[in-house]
Structures are given as structure tokens and as C-alpha cells.
Design a protein around this nucleic acid. Sequence first.
DNA 1: GTAAATAGGTTTATAATATAAACCAAATTA
DNA 2: TAATTTGGTTTATATTATAAACCTATTTAC
Lengths: 95, 95
Amino acid sequence: MFEPLDPLLHSELRLAIMSLLVSAEEAEFPYIKEQTGATAGNLSVQIDKLSAAGYLEVEKTFKGKRPCTICRITPEGLKAFEDYVKALKSYLQVK
Amino acid sequence: MFEPLDPLLHSELRLAIMSLLVSAEEAEFPYIKEQTGATAGNLSVQIDKLSAAGYLEVEKTFKGKRPCTICRITPEGLKAFEDYVKALKSYLQVK
DNA sequence: GTAAATAGGTTTATAATATAAACCAAATTA
DNA sequence: TAATTTGGTTTATATTATAAACCTATTTAC
């Protein structure tokens, strides 16, 4: 009846991060911060979790002299996102 | 960009309960338990929360000699559910 | 008739989670 | 060179989800 929801994606901020990256393929930390309205601390923690799960890959580089964290969604992340959306529909379809 | 998600509805079990009641208009505790696969304790707690928020009304009655808990969604509950679904779409629409 | 099992839940304890506050280092500006 | 800003990370706290333990009444088995 109700399909289980991936707890990693069933989180407001993590879902927003993934949603951005599904469209963008690549985004910098400050951009994600701005778009989601999250605090840097919260964002850092949630990106770590998505990265640890293999849903994101995180590249730490430099932009001029300043550090720059770039995030991209992985194929597994995209699959997980699509599965999550599919599962969600079992809750939202009001017959 | 991303609309906030009602934390009361952004919960797997509570969302399942509400989803059932949007379709059914009325359901007994054991039926909800069976359909959601939740434990009785968890279900009891989550129904209380939805009820405390005014999203559900809970009628405690008897079926023969045995206690029977009936749940119905309220107009505010329905509104909240619809708003939640609308908000969710801001996360799911992959352009 | 009474012991055990079942129905229908509620209360309570625990573990996980989300979140922001505090913090840090380097670069820039005053 | 002091203060501020950028770009984050680490840590502490408060909330939350969840199941275990529990309770009462009824039914079934002996």
C-alpha cells in the first residue's frame, strides 16, 4: 500500500539539496545555501550525509585564493531521488 | 523557491494516516494499523499529534463490548494535506 | 470457574535526527 | 594592523520517531 520512504531523502533540507542538484548537475556551497535558506552548519552536515551515502560527490577546490566546495549528484543519488518520488506518490494519490 | 513543509505532515507514518483518511473519511484504529503496518504504540502517538493539531477528530466508542477508536479528517486537516502536497511539488518538479 | 490468550489500545523510554550556535582559518577591507 | 568577511566544520541541544512495556477488558480453553 504505502511504499517506504528513504529516510535520507525524507528530510526538508536534504530533499531541497537533491532537488537543486537534479536540475543543476553542479552547484557551489554558497549557492545551495542561498537557494535553500539553510544555515551553513546545517547545510554542511546534510551534504556530508548525502555524500557519505554516495548520493552526492563533493569536490573541494579553490576559486582564486578562496576555498570552494562543489557538489554534484551521482547516478545512485539520481536513482534514489527518482525512487523517492515514486514512493511518495503512493501517499499523495487521493483516489 | 522551496516552500516550507508542514513538519506535522512531513512524517512517514502521519502522512500515511492522513492519506488514508483523505480517501476514506473515516477509519478504525485497527484498520489504520493494518494498512500502515505501524505498531499500535507508534500509531497511537501519531494519531494524538494529528488530533492535537486539529487535523483529525477521534471518536472513542464501542463496537459491541470492545473499545473502538474511529478517526476522521477535519476540514483543517484536509487543507493542511493539500497545502503540503502543493509545497512538496516545489521540491519534486525537475525542470 | 479460573487460567491463559487476545483485542484494543496508552504510556514511557530510547535512540536517531534536525538544527543552530560556536568555532576556525584565510583573505580582504578599513 | 585591527576588524570584517568568506567559506565553511564541529559540537551541543532540543525535538522526534519508534518500539517496548504496560494496562484493562473480553474471550477462549481447560
